[in-house]
Write a protein that binds this DNA or RNA. Structure first.
Length: 594
RNA sequence: GGCCCCGUGGUGUAGCCUGGUCUAACACGCCACCCUGUCAAGGUGGAGAUCGUCGGUUCAAAUCCGAUCGGGGUCGCCA
């Protein structure tokens, strides 16, 4: 049926004069009573078909019945259009197919939303008819871009000696990390597989097996609440390498990601390699966040010294209580009104738990603002010097615990960057953030947990702090950050059993528990483990960034909604009781709402 | 679980703040007829909405109040 098929988007002036057969969906029809024009659409584009009742009465009869989204086959002659009929808005606008035959391959109901235009439609409805949504130009483009990105990543990884190894989808539940999706075992009632949150342990075992350079476009599942950039199942570029340090891993990714990125012409962009590096400490100090958006300046400055001795009690008391004071300088911020600052900006700062936002304007005649009177002239000068404020600028300050100060100013900085358009939207800043802390304390429980994971190697200089001051220990974990978003993370792993044991001890995991949870990994390491490290990054998020969309569902063919349901197939759904019985599973009665 | 936003014909919106003139408007789509060079074709006519649901206030509710359901965003969560 498809021999000699002419794709709708392809014919050009040079093709005129040939017979052609085209297949596609009706994008639009214009029925003049006599002549009928049908815009025939496939994934390559749109071709105008003319059906003239004098030439082809049969075809005309068929075309008269046709409606939007019907599937048609046309046979005819590709003709040049008369000059006055050329449509310059369309790639195929110089030609048209003069139909001799028209075959209706399928009729279509009136679609529930327009397929032939990029209208905003309720997302639930789009998901219910995802096949129609995917038929639209935008998702066609997104998913084709994604496929190309994946293909190019595979090609680039293979090119530098990486081997793609598939790891299992049904594995042992991991005790740490996100909530697992469970799969019941029929042969072992009461026992469960888990779907992988990542192939972490398998890829490390591949290193023990001597595979040396592993990669996979790995599907991962995590049963956590969803966000605009988070789906319960997602795809990672997952890599692991033996006999390497950070430089080798960065170099591999600085080959693969830019190759794929540039092949896809994402944001017209070439990427500059190597990607800049910054330690976690530098990121926190200067940007207030561990995923800095380096597309614009407005760095955080430390004002603790000035604040300590100032007459502004809010500042002085914060410092006396062990807190810090930092500020950012908003260039040209003289246009920020008191209500701008006390309204939206303070709201942003409060969102990060800050109690308020202090502000000073530097004008030609000196410093202004409600708190200016609490500072001595030399203190104001010091603030100006530290923040780099000049006449016409505004300084915003927060005093609190270091964590709150950084988070609040970091959030205000990002907000202002966006609101004041401080960067060029086509710009792509990729950077490595290195030397993350090894441990962090849970706000809720107060317990110490692994910031990355328990197999992350300790920074060589900090080994001695492992027992005395674990929270000060730096790890050899790193993130890749793009325009202020984290898209992936990795680490050099621990392969020294003594260090591993000390890390587990710091986490409060004793030898017995360790054997129970990760015994197979620790045992494998006893048989000759190469030093190794790796990284994993979200393909979905990279493609989002590349295409400039904020919604992860726009780069996934069949995504779930925010409740984790798929409205098209209506999953999840109850199953037959017999199926449950076979698995030895009973359903508890749901707790009635009070 | 908390907070914020949204819910009006098939689709997208207006109307809601300031209740009555809403017997709910507009565009697209749909149906019929007319129309031989359009390309967001055009013309004429038509069908299609108890305004998410329930309750309350009122002489009167799309409009005000409460609850609830659905969707989205976000915080928690995501080693």
């Amino acid at each position: 049926m498809s021999t000699d098929r002419t794709y709708c988007g392809t014919p050009r002036a040079a093709d005129a004069g040939a017979r052609a057969t085209a297949f596609g969906w009706v994008d639009r029809r214009r029925d003049h009573g006599g002549l009928i024009f049908i815009d025939l659409r496939d994934h390559t584009g749109i071709l105008q078909v003319v059906i003239d009742p004098n030439d082809a009465p049969e075809a005309h009869r068929a075309a008269r019945e046709a409606r939007l989204e019907w599937v048609l086959r046309f046979e005819g002659m590709l003709n040049m259009r008369a000059p006055e009929n050329v449509n310059p808005k369309r790639d195929t606008g110089e030609v048209e197919l003069r139909a001799s035959e028209c075959t209706v391959l399928a009729v279509a109901k009136t679609p529930p939303f327009p397929v032939n235009e990029d209208a905003d439609v309720d997302e639930q409805l789009r998901l219910r008819h995802r096949y129609l949504d995917l038929r639209r130009v935008r998702l066609q483009r997104n998913l084709r871009a994604r496929a190309k990105f994946s293909t190019e990543l595979r090609r680039a990884m293979s090119e530098i000696g990486f081997l793609e190894i598939e790891t299992p989808m049904m594995i042992r539940a991991t005790p740490e990390g996100a909530r697992d999706y469970l799969v019941p075992s029929r042969l072992f009632p009461g026992s469960f597989y888990a779907l992988p949150q990542s192939p972490q342990l398998y890829k490390q075992l591949s290193m023990v097996a001597g595979f040396d350079r592993y990669f996979q476009l790995a599907h991962c599942m995590r049963d956590e609440d969803l966000r605009a950039d988070r789906q319960p199942e997602f795809t990672q570029l997952d890599i692991e390498m033996s006999f390497v340090d950070e430089d080798d891993i960065f170099a591999a990714l600085e080959h693969a990601i830019p190759s794929a990125w540039e092949a896809c012409e994402f944001r017209g962009g070439r990427l500059t390699v190597p990607f800049p590096r910054m330690t976690w400490r530098q990121a926190m100090d200067a940007y207030g966040v561990d995923k800095p958006d380096t597309r614009f300046e407005m760095l955080l400055s430390d004002l603790t010294a000035v604040a300590r001795t100032s007459g502004f009690r809010v500042f002085a008391e914060a410092v006396a209580g062990g807190g810090i004071v930092k500020g950012i300088c908003v260039k040209g911020g003289d246009d920020l009104s008191r209500s701008d600052i006390e309204g939206p900006l303070t709201e942003v700062a409060r969102g990060a738990k800050a109690r308020g936002l202090a502000y000073l304007w530097k004008r030609a005649d000196g410093w202004h603002g409600a708190i200016a009177k609490f500072f001595a002239p030399e203190e104001l000068d010091a603030i100006g010097t530290a923040t780099g404020a000049e006449t016409g600028d505004c300084v915003l300050m927060v005093a609190d615990r270091p964590g709150v100060v950084n988070a609040a100013l970091g959030a205000v900085r990002n907000h202002l960057g966006r609101a004041r358009a401080l960067y060029d939207d086509t710009r792509i800043d990729m950077l490595w953030v290195t030397e993350f802390p090894m441990f962090e304390r849970s706000e809720e429980t107060g317990d110490i947990g692994a910031a990355h994971h328990p197999f992350t190697m300790i920074h060589a200089d900090d080994l001695d702090l492992l027992e005395s001051d674990p929270l000060a220990v730096r790890s050899r974990a790193y993130d890749l950050v793009v325009n202020g978003r984290e898209i992936g993370s990795g680490s050099i792993r621990i392969t020294d059993p003594a260090i591993q044991q000390r890390v587990l001890a710091a986490l409060g995991i004793d030898a017995e528990e360790a054997r129970r949870k990760f015994g197979f990994l620790l045992e494998a390491f006893e048989y000759g483990v190469p030093p190794h490290g790796g990284w994993a990054g979200g393909i979905d998020r990279m493609v989002m960034e590349g295409l400039g969309t904020d919604n992860i569902r726009d780069v996934i063919a069949f995504p779930k909604n925010q409740q984790g349901q798929e409205p098209m197939t209506d999953a999840p759904a109850p199953v037959d009781p017999a199926q449950l019985r076979e698995l030895g599973i009973g359903i508890l009665p749901t707790t009635p709402k009070p």
